[in-house]
Structure formats: structure tokens, C-alpha cells
Design a protein around this nucleic acid. Structure first.
Lengths: 340, 340
DNA sequence: AGAATTTATGAAAACGTTTGCAATACTATT
DNA sequence: AATAGTATTGCAAACGTTTTCATAAATTCT
């Protein structure tokens, strides 16, 4: 069946096969109510027979939306972004959009290049992770008048519409949980904060919360590690091998916390009796390690879904309304923290 | 700077600003050597000033490639696919292509819908995960003459070009490793194999390898669990709680193996002394758990990169050559398996 | 039965590019 | 200085759709 036409099955081939004009075929797709049921059936049959697939690029040239949304992330290969991407993708798919995905590896210049690339494809909107972007990117977005939004961070004063969590609050909550348990000597393991406002906000807020309680964090209690279990393990090992060791470790995210946990186990430290470990994020799997990781839950799936839903309706709306959604954080108390 | 034009900055606006014809502007982009350096500079300046961004959809209407490649995966939110997606994305980006991503949640009908959706966007190629797809999907691909490929599985007799690993071999290697250590009573935890040829091939090959050694696996030694640590933990708990328990667990992938490990720890079983656990995949993180997970390494990143490189050159080539690449598997011996 | 609507269809212009062909302006050759 | 090239540019058609406007057919009303 479905005899392979000589390549170019377009709307006029369908029209010919159905013995109607191209206009009518187009109308059958876009305004079916304007076309008589009989003709519609003829056309549908011709479409089936020829295996016609609509050409959205051609539609797009008539001011129609392209039906695509661009998403630019630092990396795909990271539990938390994968979760956001999945949820976002599902949500926009629901609204008939297709996802154009690009990653930049935490490089803001590459981010600009990616946004530009997406705009060449005339995406109907661009979603970015975080609120920190280069001026060039901001200019480009403003100039092209492409709808844009930020995912993952929330900020009251954001220029862009955003759906996310308050990373400062996350940092504060993590610090306060440890303080509440009586910890006074706390080690910090965070990633490089350049071009990563999420990490930076968490770190500064955590430090500030500690200072409020009269605790300052000396240099030798701070360690830098990328989002990698093994490198975080390494970093933790260093932090724990000194002559005096902290009673608790506050980690930039759950991946780092997981590495820290393994590091502690390697040192033979009992968690949480001898060392408390606190993560941020509540990644998939954090509940399942032994002991379960205490963390601050950032609802990635909710954020992705909400972002997708709001963005699509923002794009399709006649009179788009600015939106800024702050998703609730929640301390998840599991087995890696305890009273001093 | 960059004064916002009244919305539509197209090639003719640029032409007007540079006082040349649209054709010349177009040529400046596509065949710069045909344009005098002086004019080229004028045009470049006009482009800068107006903030012109090329419209690939419009180019596409002239038989030019759209510059997009579609990738359809079961799910994004899975360590192993995230890794493949990242590598694939980077590789095609390198060649100037942009990724259109869609996921179907292990539903072959939705997979068809996604492929169709991508074709409406006139992707230059479609990459699918695995070799098992619905007839409708196969027909659609053949009919549209869109280049297509399979990622993740390798099969000698595949219709599509493919880059991947031999999942049967993976299953066999896992089984043989356990056999070699003297295990005779082996429990199997695998996901539902419908619409998932990866899992099915691993399972059947593992069972066959065991049978070759005169071992048949009774019903009560098999358990089904999705790719979820917690559910796999549950499944392992059931398998291990019976009156007699197996001496080893062969798991469909590393996520399941990780769950099984936690399950064993929960039962108070010492791994690997009292129970061996074998995974398949070597996910990021599998090396870092304690004890490190013994597994069969499937080089996800290599597969993604290779797939992206080969596919782009396949697409851009004048005379495309079929390709089928089988990536090497490697048993990774860590701490979760031992002699009986 | 004829006029006035309403419904269904087609013709043609438009969208933003690319490209084959024609025209023009140079340069080199004799 | 006339000729033959060659380098540069512009014109207009083409790509696959959508949409406005006009026309034809069918229906309703008086």
C-alpha cells in the first residue's frame, strides 16, 4: 500500500489526487468546518493514499507559529536537568509543540550561540535555565521579540517570566537544618559558581545563615567539586582528613552529597553519628541510598511541568501575561543528619 | 545600539539598508566568494545594525536541508539515555545541526506519533533508540525517504544503519561472569520486555547462557521491576526473602542492580560474601557506590558520539553508505560479585 | 418563481528565501 | 582601440503553504 510517490508529495499532489484545489486541501487541515464533509473525506483518503505529511516550515512562512520551543540547558546529562527536560518536554508536547534542545556546558558564550541557532529555526519561544545570562543573549532576545522564560530559578525582580525555586532559600534551609541539630563546625562542598547562579545563591545564602548564628566558615572548611560523585568523594576525603574535622558537611547538591557520603564511609566514619551530611535537590535515587540522604527538596518535575504549561499558554495567548512562579521547597529529613 | 526594527527584519530589509539587491545578500551568506569584498562588508554591517537572523525555514523551502535532526527516545529522564542524548547532541551540533528531541515513554504508538511530528518539521534525519519499532513507523520512514538510524542496539541484520552494542552479548557476558565464579542458583530481575528489545535480548541471552551450563531458571527466581531503584529494591527483597535464596542476582541494568544492592543490605546480607550482584550498563555512579558495582560496560557516550558523527556525514553525503557499528562491551569487575 | 442569503470552492497573491539567467562593469589580450 | 573574457550584480521564478477575495451552487424566504 501507500505507493511511494516520486518524492515530493505536497499539498497540490493531494489536491490533484482528490480533484480539488490546493486551497481546499489547506482548509481541510486548518478550518475543517469550512469544507463539506464529502470533500473532506475525499481529501482525507488522498492524504492517506499518498502518505502526505504537512510541511510546517512552509506554514510558518505565513506568520503561523513554527510549533517549536527551544530549551537551552547547561547539560542534559545530569539527573536534575534530565528530570526538568522530561517534564517540560511532556508539557509542551501536550500543547502541540516540539522541543528543540541545546546544551552549552556552563559556558555563557556558547549559550548565546545556541539561542541564536534556535532563533534561526524560528522557535516560538526560548526557555533558559537560570537567570544569569550574557548581555548579548538578553539583547538578542529583546531584539527578536521572541518570547523567553527562565526555568529553575525564581526571583521577584526577574526580567523574564520564570518558574523555579528560590535557591537562596534552599541554601538557608540546608544551613538552618544543620544549625538546629547543634552543628557549629560545618564544611561546605560546592561547585564552581561562575556562570552558575543556582550554586552561587545557595552558597552565599548558606554562608550568610551561618554568619547570622555567629559562625564564620574558614577557608579550610570550604572545598570545590564539580557535579560528580567521584570528584566530590575526593573533595570530602580531603575535608575529612585534616587534624580536626567538621561535624557536618553541607553540599551544593545531592550528587555532591552522595560523593561526600561515600567519602565518609571510606574514612570509616559512621553517618550520621560521627558526621552529618546534607544535600540540596532531592534527586531521584537520593531516597534510596543507605542511609537515605537528608536534603532540601526542589520539585524538578513540578517546575518542568509548570514551566511548560505556562510558557505554551503565554506563547499562544493573545494578551500574554507576565508570570513568576516560586515553587515550594521542603526539607526532607532522612538518615544522613543527626544531632551532634 | 541595534535599533529595534519594526519586527520583520528580513533579507530585503538588509538589502535595502545596504543598497543592494536581496540576491546579493543571500549570496553573501551562501556563496561569499561570488560577492566582492566591498559589498560583503556593506552587507555585514547592515546585518549587524538591523540584527538580522537568518530564517532557516525559508531556506528549507529551496530544497536546502533544515539543519535539524530528530531523536526519539523512550525517556530522557534515565541516566543512560541522558548520556547518549548529550553525546549525540554535541556531535551533531559540531556538524551544524540542531536537535529535535521527543520521548514516548516506551509506547511504540506514541513513538510513531513523535516520528511523524518530527517529519512535519522536516528534520533531515530521525534517530531512534533500539531496533524494535511499529510497522507504521517503518512504513512512514520508508515512504518519506527520511534518513533514519537506530542507536543503542547493534544487529547484523538490521534494516536501519545502527550504532550500538549487542545486548545479547551483554546478557551472555553477565551470566558467564557469574557462572565462572561458581554460581548455580541465580536470580533474575528484569523490566517488562514488551516494546523494549534491549531488555529482552539481555534476558533471553542470559537465560540461554545459563541453560547451556545446564541451569534452568525456575519461575520463583525471576522478578520483574521497572527501571527504578526503589521498585527494584522491593523486587530484590521478595526474591531474597524466600526459604532458600539464590547466591547471585543478575539484573537487567545498573539501576536495578543498585536497587538490589540496597535490598540486600537491608536484609543484612553481606555483598559479595553472601550474595553476588551483577548489573549491566555501567552507569555514571555505578563505580562510586559502596561496594562498587560489578557490571558489563556499555559505552553510552561513545555510542552517542559515534552515532552523531556517522549520521551527520551519512545525511550530508552525496552517496550515503550504510553503516553498522558494534561497540565493544567490557566486563567491569568491582566489588559486588565474588566466588561462591 | 425570483431575490436574498448562505455554503462550498477556486484563483491568485503573499510569505522569505535561493538560484538560473541576463545584464553590466571591469580586465586582459591582441 | 576593439574584442573576448571574467567578475559582480540584479531580475524574476520557484519553493509549499495560507488566506483574501471572488464566484458558483445550494438553500431559504417572500
Amino acid at each position: 500500500m501507500a505507493p511511494k510517490q516520486k518524492g515530493n508529495v505536497d499539498i497540490v499532489a493531494v489536491a490533484k489526487a482528490a480533484k480539488v484545489s490546493p486551497s481546499t486541501v489547506s482548509r481541510t487541515f486548518n478550518h475543517p468546518d469550512l469544507v463539506s464533509p464529502a470533500t473532506r473525506k475525499k481529501i482525507t483518503r488522498a492524504v492517506q493514499k499518498l502518505g502526505y505529511v504537512r510541511n510546517r516550515a512552509a506554514q510558518m512562512m505565513h506568520g503561523k507559529r513554527s510549533g517549536t520551543i527551544g530549551l537551552v540547558v547547561p547539560t542534559i546529562n545530569h539527573a536534575i536537568f534530565a528530570e526538568v527536560i522530561q517534564a517540560f518536554s511532556d508539557a509542551i508536547d501536550q500543547a502541540g509543540f516540539t522541543l528543540l534542545l541545546a546544551s552549552h556546558g556552563y559556558d555563557l558564550d556558547r549559550e548565546y550561540a545556541m539561542v541564536r541557532k534556535l532563533m534561526e529555526h524560528r522557535v516560538d519561544g526560548v526557555a533558559l535555565i537560570g537567570l544569569e545570562h550574557s548581555d548579548a543573549t538578553a539583547r538578542l532576545i529583546a531584539q527578536q521579540e521572541t518570547p523567553a522564560m527562565a526555568i529553575w530559578n525564581y526571583a521577584e525582580d526577574s526580567e523574564l517570566p520564570c518558574v523555579g525555586a528560590d535557591n537562596r532559600q534552599a541554601g538557608r534551609m540546608a544551613a538552618e537544618h544543620l544549625l538546629q541539630l547543634g552543628h557549629r563546625d560545618i564544611g561546605l562542598i560546592f561547585p564552581d559558581t561562575r556562570g552558575n547562579d543556582r550554586a552561587r545563591h545557595r552558597l552565599t545564602a548558606a554562608v550568610k545563615a551561618l554568619e547570622t548564628h555567629g559562625i564564620s566558615v574558614p577557608e579550610n572548611r570550604m572545598s570545590e567539586a564539580p557535579y560528580s560523585v567521584s570528584q566530590a568523594k575526593q573533595a570530602a576525603l580531603e575535608l575529612l582528613s585534616g587534624p580536626s574535622r567538621p561535624t557536618a558537611l553541607l553540599c551544593g547538591n545531592d550528587v555532591i552529597a552522595q560523593g561526600a557520603l561515600y567519602g565518609a564511609q571510606k574514612c570509616g566514619l559512621r553517618v550520621p553519628d560521627e558526621l552529618s551530611i546534607m544535600g540540596i535537590g532531592d534527586f531521584k535515587g537520593s531516597a534510596d541510598i543507605e542511609p537515605g540522604l537528608t536534603t532540601v527538596r526542589i520539585p524538578a518535575e513540578t517546575i518542568g511541568t509548570l514551566a511548560g504549561e505556562r510558557f505554551t499558554s503565554y506563547i499562544t495567548s493573545e494578551a500574554p501575561e507576565m508570570f513568576k512562579l516560586c515553587c515550594e521547597l521542603e526539607p526532607i529529613l532522612r538518615g544522613t543528619t543527626g544531632r551532634i
